[in-house]
């Protein structure tokens, strides 16, 4: 999933889809790249489970599936705080209990 997010165009596509579903043509409009190039990015996002594509006649509509993103952000956020504070506590205790450095 993270490699899917590593490209600025794909992050921009997700940001657009956060406002609501859009057709592939609508998604491609703001970008100065070809439709096939946009389709390729959409496929990457689809494979990462971040985007759902439905087809009606010749129109492909894309919608954001934010659940994996939220899930990942929750995990990272929760443990970022946990470990930062836990290492603060370790530092305070370790520096108070550390043996004196040997002087040369």
């Amino acid at each position: 999933m993270f490699s899917a997010l590593a490209h600025p165009t794909r992050r921009a596509l997700l940001a657009r889809l956060a406002d609501g579903p859009a057709s592939v043509t609508e998604l491609a409009a703001p970008f100065a790249v070809s439709l096939p190039a946009i389709s390729k990015h959409i496929s990457v996002l689809e494979q990462a489970g971040l985007l759902q594509r439905t087809q009606s006649g010749r129109v492909h509509t894309c919608a954001l599936d934010a659940a994996p993103l939220r899930d990942a952000a929750d995990f990272v956020q929760r443990y970022q705080v946990f470990w930062t504070q836990t290492l603060d506590a370790l530092a305070a205790y370790a520096e108070a209990t550390a043996p004196e450095p040997e002087s040369d």
Binding site: M1, F2, S3, G49, P68, D71, A72, F75, V76, Y79, Q80, W83, T84, L87, D88, L90, A91, Y93, A94, E95, T97, A98, P99, P101
Partner: peptide, 28 residues
């Protein structure tokens, strides 16, 4: 969703073997 990890670093003024002991001994 497999590739999910976070990294937190902290430099502490104590030697590695002391920190290892603090991390693994219940009394610490």
């Amino acid at each position: 969703m497999a590739d999910l990890a976070l990294v937190v670093r902290r430099t502490i003024r104590a030697p590695a073997d002391h920190l290892f002991a603090l991390w693994t001994e219940p009394r610490h």
